[in-house]
Amino acid sequence: MIDLLTIFVLAVFVGFEVVSKVSTILHTPLMSGANAIHGVILVGAILITGRAEGGPELALGLAAVFLATVNVVGGFVVTDRMLEMFKGHKR
């Protein structure tokens, strides 16, 4: 358990560090990109559904897989579309 806590604390600092300086231009894409990354819950959804043995657990698990997939693919695609707009306008 302490291992997991250590990972948590270190990840907090990494998270603070990587986005400490962002130009306002990129706030929207960054939010959208971070949004796509928390779609990683898809991994959790697959793991629990892969263990489910029928019944409501299976139904709920599949619902979670579906929702998480929407989060992941939607998030990355929207972010890419936004960033595409900046192409060719670099200084």
Partner: peptide
């Protein structure tokens, strides 16, 4: 699951800063 912890925390922390 360590990946969920790391990725979730990254988003939580960066989202707070943002």
């Amino acid at each position: 699951n360590t990946l969920l912890i790391v990725a979730g925390t990254l988003v939580g922390a960066s989202g707070t800063i943002l």
